[in-house]
């Protein structure tokens, strides 16, 4: 077997590779979707169960629905700017960084929200600080915000990737186009997931 054969077999057409990659990402989105479903399910399950009136215990705080939406808007905007960039063809490399910046802003907002939640109950034990959360509502909120944060990080990573890559000239154009579409799938998904989470947390 010659080396040429070896290369030949591995080198599928870029369009095939691109499609395959998008399929893989979509499958991972299914997995992530199950994760988001699990969180939303938990939110409503605990809300409706309201065991021992502990969903929002007496004196517990709530977070305004708007707070949830504010940290989701950048996700939506990023998904849209990425689409615009894709449509713009050659101008992609100029618009793509905007997506990245939007996601960074979102990441910051999300971090702010997470760090300033009013749910924390500080306590002391054996001279060391411990933290607690007020109840099931607070716990569910924190988890959802954390997952959003994770989406922002992955989103920012791939957005930075396509932005950087779009400035290089030595990459296969067809494959790069497919990779932009693949990244688009992910950005669209995290926007959808963010909206679903924001709707969830709007129902207190």
């Amino acid at each position: 077997m010659s080396g040429d054969t070896r290369f030949h077999v591995h080198h599928d057409a870029p369009i095939q590779v691109g499609r395959r990659e998008r399929l893989g990402v979509r499958l991972l989105i299914v997995a992530d979707g199950a994760f988001v479903f699990g969180m939303i399910f938990s939110y409503f399950y605990l809300r409706n169960l309201n065991a021992n009136n502990g969903w929002i215990p007496e004196g517990g705080h709530t977070l305004s629905a708007m707070s949830g939406w504010v940290s989701v808007f950048p996700l939506i905007i990023a998904a849209i700017t990425h689409r615009i960039a894709m449509k713009s063809g050659n101008a992609f490399k100029n618009i793509a960084p905007i997506t990245f910046v939007v996601l960074l802003v979102g990441l910051y907002l999300q971090w702010k929200q997470l760090a300033h939640m009013p749910f924390q109950v500080d306590g002391e034990a054996e001279g060391e600080k411990i933290f607690g959360f007020e109840g099931a509502y607070a716990s569910s909120w924190v988890l959802i915000a954390g997952a959003n944060m994770f989406h922002y990080i992955l989103g920012a990573f791939v957005a930075l990737g396509v932005a950087l890559r779009s400035r290089r000239n030595d990459l296969n154009a067809v494959l790069e186009f497919w990779r932009q579409r693949t990244v688009g799938s992910w950005l669209t998904w995290i926007a959808i997931s963010g909206i679903a989470c924001a709707i969830t947390t709007s129902i207190i």
Binding site: G38, F41, S42, Y45, L46, L49, N50, A51, N52, N53, G54, W55, I56, P57, V121, I130, F131, G132, F133, E134, G135, A136, Y137, A138, S139, S140, V142, L143
Partner: peptide, 21 residues
């Protein structure tokens, strides 16, 4: 590790939630 209350029925959680998931 952070004293949330997903599974503590005293504060609105439930072991049933765990069993479901």
């Amino acid at each position: 590790s952070y004293a949330t209350t997903f599974f503590d029925a005293n504060l609105g959680g439930s072991g049933w939630l765990y069993a479901h998931l």
